[in-house]
Structures are given as structure tokens and as C-alpha cells.
Deep mutational scan, measured.
Amino acid sequence: VTVDIKGMEYHFDNPEEAKKFAERMAKELGGELKVENGTLKVE
């Protein structure tokens, strides 16, 4: 699973970990979490 945090890509084997990480980063950065082509994106 790929997580894109404002252009920086992180790769996770575990989808649950990827989702938790993306949600935490969205909250910390005040960004919006989206799913695009199987990639979790925070913008």
C-alpha cells in the first residue's frame, strides 16, 4: 500500500498500518485524506 503525504511516498505491507499512518498524518498536518487509484493521499 502506498501512502502519499504531500508528495512524499511511504510504502506499507499492512493496509491497516497504512490507513492509521495516513489518518494520523492528515490530522497532524491539517490535510485531507483521499483514496486515489489505491493510494492513500494526504493533501
Rank of each mutant, 00 (worst) to 15 (best):
V1R: 07
V1P: 02
V1I: 12
V1A: 08
T2V: 13
T2H: 08
T2Y: 08
T2N: 06
T2R: 10
T2M: 09
T2E: 01
V3A: 01
V3D: 00
V3L: 04
V3K: 01
V3S: 00
V3I: 07
V3T: 01
V3Q: 00
V3C: 07
V3N: 01
V3R: 01
D4R: 14
D4H: 15
D4C: 15
D4I: 15
D4S: 15
D4W: 14
D4F: 14
D4M: 15
I5A: 02
I5G: 01
I5R: 01
I5K: 01
I5D: 00
I5P: 01
I5T: 01
I5S: 02
K6C: 15
K6H: 15
K6A: 15
K6N: 15
K6F: 15
K6T: 09
K6I: 11
K6D: 15
K6L: 15
K6M: 15
K6R: 12
G7W: 02
G7H: 03
G7K: 02
G7P: 00
G7A: 00
G7Y: 04
M8C: 13
M8E: 11
M8W: 09
E9S: 11
E9H: 13
E9C: 15
E9G: 04
E9T: 10
E9F: 13
E9N: 08
Y10T: 05
Y10Q: 04
Y10E: 02
Y10N: 03
Y10S: 03
Y10M: 06
Y10A: 03
H11W: 13
H11F: 13
H11S: 05
H11M: 08
F12R: 00
F12M: 00
F12T: 00
F12Y: 01
F12Q: 01
F12G: 01
F12D: 02
F12K: 00
F12A: 01
D13W: 06
D13Q: 08
D13E: 11
D13N: 10
D13V: 07
D13Y: 05
N14G: 06
N14D: 14
N14L: 06
N14F: 05
N14M: 04
N14T: 12
P15R: 07
P15K: 08
P15Q: 10
P15L: 15
P15S: 10
E16C: 14
E16D: 12
E16F: 08
E16I: 09
E16W: 10
E16M: 08
E17W: 02
E17P: 00
A18S: 01
A18V: 00
A18Y: 03
K19A: 09
K19Y: 15
K19V: 11
K19S: 08
K19N: 10
K19W: 15
K20C: 14
K20L: 10
K20E: 13
K20F: 07
K20G: 08
K20R: 13
K20P: 00
F21S: 01
F21K: 00
F21Q: 01
F21V: 02
F21H: 03
F21M: 02
F21C: 11
A22E: 06
A22W: 08
A22Q: 06
A22H: 03
A22N: 02
E23R: 00
E23C: 08
E23G: 00
E23W: 00
E23M: 03
E23D: 09
E23N: 00
R24N: 10
R24A: 13
R24Q: 12
M25L: 08
M25C: 12
M25K: 04
M25I: 09
M25Q: 04
M25N: 01
M25G: 00
M25H: 03
M25E: 02
A26H: 04
A26V: 10
A26T: 06
A26F: 05
A26P: 00
A26G: 03
A26L: 09
A26I: 09
A26Q: 07
A26S: 07
K27L: 12
K27A: 11
K27G: 06
K27C: 14
K27P: 01
K27E: 09
K27D: 07
K27Y: 09
E28D: 07
E28N: 08
E28A: 12
E28H: 12
E28I: 14
E28S: 09
L29E: 03
L29P: 02
L29D: 03
L29S: 06
L29A: 05
G30K: 10
G30V: 04
G30E: 07
G31K: 03
G31Y: 12
G31S: 07
G31V: 10
G31A: 11
G31W: 12
G31H: 07
G31T: 06
E32H: 14
E32W: 15
E32R: 14
E32K: 14
E32C: 14
E32T: 14
E32F: 14
E32G: 07
L33P: 04
L33G: 04
L33F: 05
L33T: 06
L33H: 04
L33S: 04
L33Y: 04
K34M: 10
K34Q: 08
K34R: 13
K34T: 11
K34E: 06
K34W: 10
K34Y: 11
K34A: 07
V35R: 06
V35W: 15
V35C: 15
E36W: 01
E36F: 05
E36N: 09
E36D: 11
E36Y: 04
N37M: 03
N37D: 11
N37R: 03
N37H: 05
N37I: 04
N37V: 03
N37W: 00
N37G: 11
G38P: 05
G38M: 01
G38C: 11
G38F: 00
G38S: 03
G38Y: 00
G38W: 00
G38K: 02
T39G: 09
T39C: 13
T39R: 14
T39V: 15
T39Q: 12
T39K: 15
L40R: 04
L40G: 06
L40P: 06
L40K: 05
K41A: 07
K41R: 13
K41Y: 12
K41H: 11
K41W: 08
K41N: 06
K41E: 06
K41S: 09
K41L: 11
V42R: 00
V42Q: 03
V42T: 05
E43V: 15
E43C: 15
E43F: 13
E43H: 12
